[in-house]
């Protein structure tokens, strides 16, 4: 099953490599990982998406908790949560494609945030499946470059990950 693990860790050099090292040393897979500081600058928040059996994910959670730099860990998939990923896609925007690309961006509620004579950069935010669907909907020849942030997640309502 797909799990979204969200954690708070000390914002110290090396903390990220401890988490990444743990995953590679123990053979856990990472589908995506992102990390950035929080409003409390001593803490970073990381979101890791992994796909594994419940037993393995339980081990992953325990091993993450065991890292001295990790302050708190939750598995967002255990409760109501919202997940989002952001993607930037550079597409061809020449001739007939110029209209077509704009139309596709509108359908998927993307925004065109960069324009040149022959390219657009489209920004798209949503669940992973939506971003995947967008890429599939585009004609393959139209895509020049893509970059994705990986999933971020947050619990709904009273479910808060905070120190």
């Amino acid at each position: 099953m797909r799990h979204i693990i969200s954690l708070l860790m000390e914002n110290e050099s090396g903390a990220l490599s401890r988490v990444a090292g743990l995953f590679s040393a123990r053979g856990y897979n990472i589908e995506s990982l992102n990390v950035a500081p929080t409003e409390d600058e001593t803490l970073s928040r990381m979101t890791i998406v992994t796909r594994d059996s419940d037993e393995v994910v339980e081990q992953i959670m325990k091993q993450l908790n065991k890292l001295v730099d990790v302050v708190k860990v939750v598995d967002l998939s255990e409760g109501l949560h919202i997940e989002r990923e952001m993607m930037l896609v550079k597409v061809k925007a020449e001739g007939i494609w110029r209209e077509e690309m704009k139309r596709m961006a509108d359908i998927f509620r993307g925004r065109i945030i960069g324009v040149t004579e022959n390219t657009y950069i489209i920004e798209l935010t949503g669940a992973v499946s939506k971003l995947d669907a967008f890429l599939e909907a585009l004609e393959t020849g139209a895509i020049i470059e893509t970059v994705r942030t990986g999933t971020s997640g947050i619990g709904r309502g009273d479910w808060v990950l905070k120190v």
Binding site: S13, S17, R18, G21, V68
Partner: peptide, 14 residues
Amino acid sequence: TVGITRPCVKHNFL
């Protein structure tokens, strides 16, 4: 050293 020893320490510091 911190990188080399990371997988075989409880924790390490530079």
